[in-house]
Design a protein around this nucleic acid. Structure first.
Lengths: 218, 218
DNA sequence: GCATCCGATTTGTGATCACAGTTTGCAGAT
DNA sequence: ATCTGCAAACTGTGATCACAAATCGGATGC
């Protein structure tokens, strides 16, 4: 007798190291871990109910993406970025994101803009609720929803590693600042999308990315 | 009694997984491995005189950087890129490399240009000798020597993962083409550097990157 | 000739262990 | 009180193993 298949036809259950990787990656990207926090193989293994081996593979993978830093003694912590490094990562965002947005513009349709609108509302609610993790999550989802339409998987992949590196720092900055007003540039992005204005869209993204971080840093 | 220290004061000998990683990474980036070639844990372990564990960590790290692809069954091979993917990676290079060059321009001094000149000569010799690996290696070294002056480690890191992803493909394309003339744009790059002309430098890099690959692809 | 099937071999996965190095916390001395 | 030293606990590294899945080989059938 066959088990009733709830989701897909076949999903060959992901390996343990992949589950651990995904869980940790989401935590780092959404800023659920503060900068400088140390992660231990046995601790993660216990947390996910696996042995040290898959935990080690997940950490190795995340450090390769810059999501975690490796001390000289092999200890793994979430990165504490210098101001220069933060600035550089923001400049990379300012280089990649307008390009991805521009590529997506040609393929953008109304349903996409509506979806981004509703994500943006969730983002505003998260700000009002003072929920840093949910704020970061919806903000990234707003951007990613747009960039997925660019059909440039390699570029989006690079950008996501940048987001990963900034995750803990953004959380720390947000907590220190406690902003209460919504990011003003999302509306500009949506307007430029609706108008089909490439130059305005690029500019809106560049300012959203740089101003956002610069504002937090100040 | 102390052993005489030959090189540095202290070099705490790198872990096995790191040695394996470095070795494989260089092979992939320089195009010493053809696209589609499979790598096995036990095979790599034998080759480097280690067990499966460090070999697995090295492979996990390289797949995280896009240097290798992971099949559904967990088998690791060097990637066979589609034309679209090659095109996209070239566009990423065209986005990052002019920016890095521009940043380096302000800090570039004569000794740097001389060094690039001599690397370029080695590159020309490699072409004349029909040595694909040495051609790729000197070409990348030419670019990296310039970009190191940009003092933008995060951006250079991203770019290197792009180079990694292109490594095997560039080798395959080179072998299929057997070019005999030196890349013409390196001279333009050097001239723009000497003239301190930012616009010309950006353009020279953009064309070097796109033309180079497009020329190989045709 | 060409596809199919089945067994032997090879492969990745994950657990466990011993070991060396590091970190931590507490004691005693200045 | 503050610093120093030391022992106990902890941590990452790498080897080895059992196991299930995938791959490959050749023989068999059409």
């Amino acid at each position: 007798m066959n088990e009733p298949v709830t989701r897909q036809a076949i999903l060959p259950d992901p390996p343990a190291h992949d589950r651990v990787y995904r869980g940790l990656r989401q935590m780092v990207m959404h800023g659920e871990i503060f900068p400088g926090q140390a992660l231990t193989l046995r601790g993660i293994g216990r947390q996910y109910g696996v042995s040290m081996t898959p935990a080690r593979e997940a950490l190795r993978r995340l450090t390769a993406e810059g999501a975690l830093t490796l001390s000289a003694s092999g200890r793994v912590t979430t990165p504490e970025l210098s101001n220069d490094r933060i600035e550089e990562l923001a400049q990379i965002r300012a280089l990649l994101e307008p390009e991805l947005a521009s590529r997506a513009l040609r393929r953008a349709h109304l349903a996409l803009i509506d979806r981004m609108e509703s994500i943006n509302e969730a983002n505003a609610r998260a700000i009002h609720r003072q929920d840093p993790v949910e704020y970061i999550r919806t903000n990234l989802e707003f951007h990613r929803t747009l960039y997925l339409r660019a059909q440039s998987p390699a570029m989006l992949g690079l950008l996501e590693t940048v987001w990963l590196q900034l995750g803990p720092t953004m959380r720390a900055l947000y907590t220190r600042l406690r902003r209460t007003t919504a990011p003003p540039h999302h509306r500009l992005i949506l307007e430029a999308l609706r108008a089909g204005d490439d130059a305005a869209l690029r500019l809106a993204l560049r300012t959203d990315v740089t101003q956002g971080l610069r504002h937090l840093q100040a």
